[in-house]
């Protein structure tokens, strides 16, 4: 294991001590932070390792949220609903990936974005199962005590983060990670040396979806009520990309730090400039990307831009 991977694991383990430090508000922040890290680390598998800039995260976040919400409605326990949501996200992403990942650069980016719209519309129209635009009420899974509830969902999200972290570290040091790196650098040459690029890309896309699906599931159980505009929100796709860009593409530790830094920025801006929150945050992000175009930890930021231009 590389040293940066070790630091990453330690960082995630440290997060587990958060409930010792604060009240319900801190735990809420911690849960959101863990969720953001899951999304950013997941995006890095397809966007950073394989070089395919995906905007599909919101699709699988929503899929996981609805799958879990519906299963909980049928009295399936949370510990079983989450792996099912993750498995479904993996399978759907893997299958769709075999088709979508034939596209490159901005064509792929746009197609992955369309996936979010498609899933949202399906959920909107499958009223019997999902409640459609009216949203879905989800039975309470934790206790009624506010602190216990906050602690429970924090640890649920944290556990998904831990699994995600272990998975991305395993991928980056495996044959799969090596192959994805080949694909990012030269896909034609990868095929020519015997690499089944379609399979590798599909697995990467599946992995980048399954933990996001599980995070969506925890989120749904946590907030007790979801509707299509909430969980298929395109910001779930965009923010992880910004986080990964801040941190520097490719390195999991960098991406995690980028996610945390982004959240600090967002929180500070939200507290102090509540009226023009989005504008200030947008300006800050643009400034960061302009002055740190390659992220904080590595020098690969330009690569995504090149990809987006359709290299």
């Amino acid at each position: 294991m590389k040293r940066s991977d070790l630091i990453l694991i330690v960082l995630v383990l440290c997060l587990a001590a958060l409930p010792l430090a604060g009240g319900a508000y801190t735990l809420r922040l911690g849960t959101m932070a863990a969720m953001s890290c899951i999304l950013a680390l997941s995006w890095n598998v397809i966007g950073g390792f394989a070089g395919y800039p995906s905007f599909a995260a919101a699709a699988f976040f929503g899929l996981g949220a609805y799958t879990t919400g519906i299963l909980l409605g049928y009295k399936v326990p949370l510990w079983l609903s989450l792996p099912i949501a993750a498995g479904l996200s993996f399978a759907l992403a893997g299958l769709l990936g075999a088709v979508l990942l034939r596209l490159r650069g901005h064509y792929f980016a746009i197609a992955s974005l369309a996936l979010v719209e498609v899933l949202r519309e399906i959920v909107n129209h499958a009223t019997d199962l999902t409640g459609g635009g009216m949203g879905l009420n989800i039975p309470v899974t934790a206790g009624t005590d506010i602190m216990a509830d906050a602690r429970f969902f924090f640890y649920a999200m944290w556990l998904v983060l831990l699994v995600t972290t272990i998975a991305v570290i395993a991928v980056s040091s495996s044959r799969l990670g090596f192959g994805l790196s080949c694909i990012r650098q030269n896909e034609a040459a990868s095929q020519m040396v015997g690499l089944n690029t379609t399979l590798y890309k599909s697995i990467a896309f599946g992995l980048s979806a399954c933990f996001v699906g599980a995070a969506g599931g925890v989120y749904a159980a946590w907030v007790h009520y979801i509707d299509p505009t909430d969980v298929f929100d395109i910001l779930y796709s965009v923010k992880p990309i910004v986080m990964a860009l801040i941190g520097g593409l490719g390195s999991s530790l960098g991406v995690m730090i980028g996610a945390l830094l982004y959240l600090v920025l967002e929180e500070v801006v939200w507290r102090n400039y509540i009226q023009f929150h989005s504008a200030v945050l947008g300006a800050l992000i643009i400034a960061l990307l302009l002055f740190l175009p390659h992220g904080l930890t590595s020098l690969r930021g330009g690569l995504l831009l090149r990809r987006l231009r359709g290299a």
Partner: peptide, 15 residues
Amino acid sequence: QPFPEMSALDNVAAA
């Protein structure tokens, strides 16, 4: 058609 960021060794190892 090399893998430009990889070492020469890893280029050949990939094959």
